[in-house]
């Protein structure tokens, strides 16, 4: 029985080895070698000049995650409290944009935020731009635009895990809390919120990790002015600054920082189910 079920696991083990473990090993090897193949730590030493990119990446990703949480939690909470018909509808609306291509959605934001984009055209037509005495509002190529793109693209990943935790909460626990003297705020603070922590941890992980490593959003909405780690790494492999060894080293450092962040976070949610590690 045991041997048989083990046999079923073989394809997955091969899959994991080929597509997860092997790339990580390759990345580590690249990070510690020179183009000639010798061992070196130079790749890491030269990383100091990119400190601003590191800081910006983590700062923007952090900001996007916080905004996603602040927006996503109330949405998830209200959704879970509504009737099943509303829940289905809300779920469909949240999922709908995800059926469109990620790049397409981000391009759409470009045409909304551009200097001659939808917003500026609208403001111009309303005469507000004249009122302010400017040619156009600078919306694109700002950190705000990058954060907006992250929030827009990754918000569903915050809402869904929180929603699925809250909707499964045992109603009798909430009754018990009320019975023991808690008003609505107390029930939320002492029961609903602590019990939805696993969902929050999953959501935070699922928003933070892709945000910190994105390059499409920062390229399209940041217009190169807001270079992030993703862009930096991409340049090392495909761009003019071709240096896969440096790229691997940056990737590795970023991965280590992310893993440490998640580990610390999970530690605070002690005992709760582990957040999904991507």
């Amino acid at each position: 029985m045991r041997n048989r079920s083990r046999r079923f696991a073989i394809p997955y083990v091969i899959w994991m080895a080929l597509l997860v473990v092997a790339p990580i090993i390759l990345m580590v090897i690249y990070a510690f070698t020179t183009a000639e193949g010798g061992f070196t730590l130079d790749n890491f030493a030269s990383m100091g000049s990119y400190l601003d990119v590191f800081l910006r990446s983590f700062e923007l990703a952090f900001l996007a995650t916080v905004i996603c949480l602040l927006v996503g939690y109330p949405v998830a909470y209200l959704m879970a409290k509504e009737g099943p018909r509303f829940q289905r509808l809300a779920m469909a609306l949240i999922m709908l944009p995800m059926w469109m291509n990620f790049l397409l959605r981000t391009y759409a934001w470009m045409s909304i935020l551009e200097n001659n984009g939808l917003i500026n055209q609208l403001l111009r037509a309303l005469g507000i731009l004249d009122l302010l005495g400017v040619e156009h509002l600078r919306l694109i190529r700002t950190q705000g635009a990058v954060v907006l793109g992250m929030v827009y693209n990754y918000l569903p990943f915050m809402i869904l895990p929180i929603y699925s935790v809250i909707v499964k909460l045992d109603g009798s626990l909430l009754e018990a809390a009320r019975d023991l003297g808690a008003n609505s705020a107390g029930v939320f603070r002492k029961v609903i919120f602590p019990l939805s922590l696993p969902g929050i941890l999953s959501g935070v992980t699922m928003v933070f990790v892709p945000s910190v490593s994105t390059f499409a959003i920062s390229r399209l909405l940041g217009g190169g002015a807001q270079m992030m780690l993703g862009d930096l790494i991409e340049q090392q492999f495909l761009g003019g600054a071709y240096d896969p060894h440096l790229g691997a080293a940056i990737s590795m450092v970023m991965m280590v920082i992310v893993v440490v962040c998640i580990a610390v976070m999970n530690h605070f949610g002690e005992g709760e189910e582990q957040a999904v590690m991507l």
Partner: peptide, 17 residues
């Protein structure tokens, strides 16, 4: 409301936190 009543309940499935 329940939280203002001098009544406490032992629930069927205990409803422990």
């Amino acid at each position: 409301p329940p939280h203002k009543r001098q009544v406490n309940t032992v629930f069927q499935k205990y409803a422990l936190f």
